[in-house]
C-alpha cells in the first residue's frame, strides 16, 4: 500500500532534514498511528504520501505507484483514491453539510444523480443524516470533523490520511471520531493518523510508528504512546 525506501527530505530553507533515510512499509488494511513531537517529520511524511512534496532522495510508493515517476497530470487520479482529514476540518463555511460533501464529487465531475445517492449514504455512516442542511458554523467541532471525514470517505478511498484529526476536540468527542475512523478501517480502508493524543493511541492498541528529528525511532504493532527513550 505504502512503501518508503530510504526517503530523505530537506526543505530548502532548513539545514536539518525533515525526514532522514526513512524506510518502512504499510500494508493494505492497516491502522497506523504516526506519533512524535512537533517537527519530528509526521506532516512531511503525510505530505510525501499525498505528493505535495518530492523527496530529495529515496522512493515513495503509494497504491502501487512510484511517486517519483508519476507525471503531474496523474496526481489528481492518485488523490482521488486517498481521503484526507485535517485538524482544522477545512470545510467551506458558506456551504451546507450536504454541499460540502457534494463539492468533493462535483469537482471531480461526478454526475448529479450519483451525488444525490452517495452523499446521504456517507452522511449516515458518520451519523449526520439529520443535519444535512446545516452550515458548518452551526455544528460542534466533532460534527464538523465528521463532515470532513464524510467528504474524505465519500469516494470510498483505499487510503485515509488523518493529520491530527482530534487535535481540536475534547476527549469525549475524540473517542467518537476514533470509533468512526475505526469503522472506516474495518470497511477495508487503510488509515494513517498522526496524533499527539496518548490516550487514544493507548486505547486503540494499533501499530505505532514514532518519528523523532526525521528518524523512525520505534515501529510497534499494537503499540502505545509514550516516547521511547
Amino acid at each position: 500500500m505504502i512503501l518508503f525506501d530510504h526517503v530523505s527530505k530537506t526543505y530548502p530553507s532548513q539545514n536539518r532534514p525533515a525526514l532522514d533515510d526513512v524506510s518502512l512499509e504499510i500494508e493494505k488494511g492497516e491502522f497506523v498511528f504516526l506519533v512524535g513531537p512537533s517537527g519530528s517529520g509526521k506532516s512531511t511524511f503525510l505530505r510525501l504520501v499525498l505528493r505535495e512534496e518530492h523527496p530529495n532522495s529515496g522512493t515513495v510508493w503509494v497504491l502501487g505507484k512510484d511517486l517519483n515517476r508519476l507525471s503531474n497530470w496523474k496526481i489528481p487520479t492518485l488523490r482521488r483514491q486517498i481521503g484526507t482529514v485535517f485538524q482544522d476540518f477545512r470545510l467551506l463555511p458558506n456551504k451546507s453539510v450536504f454541499e460540502n460533501v457534494a463539492f468533493a464529487l462535483e469537482v471531480i465531475g461526478k454526475p448529479r444523480s450519483h451525488i444525490r445517492k452517495v452523499v446521504p449514504e456517507v452522511l449516515e455512516v458518520v451519523g449526520l443524516e439529520d443535519k444535512m442542511e446545516r452550515r458548518p458554523d452551526e455544528l460542534s467541532g466533532g460534527e464538523q470533523q465528521r463532515v470532513a471525514i464524510a467528504r474524505a470517505f465519500v469516494n470510498r478511498p483505499m487510503l485515509l490520511i488523518a493529520d491530527e484529526p482530534t487535535g481540536n476536540l475534547d476527549p469525549n468527542t475524540s473517542i467518537g471520531i476514533m470509533k468512526l475512523l475505526d469503522r472506516i478501517n474495518r470497511l477495508g480502508t487503510t488509515v494513517i493518523m498522526s496524533t499527539h493524543d496518548s490516550q487514544i493511541v493507548d486505547q486503540m492498541r494499533r501499530r505505532v510508528i514514532e518519528l523523532e528529528t526525521g528518524h523512525v525511532v520505534r515501529d510497534q504493532s499494537r503499540g502505545v504512546y509514550g516516547y521511547a527513550r
Partner: peptide, 17 residues
C-alpha cells in the same frame, strides 16, 4: 485558496480547478 486547496486534495484536475 480554501476552495482550491480542497479541490486539490480531493483530486480535482488542474483544468477543473
Amino acid at each position: 485558496r480554501r476552495e482550491t486547496g480542497i479541490m486539490r486534495l480531493v483530486g480535482a484536475s488542474n483544468f477543473y480547478i
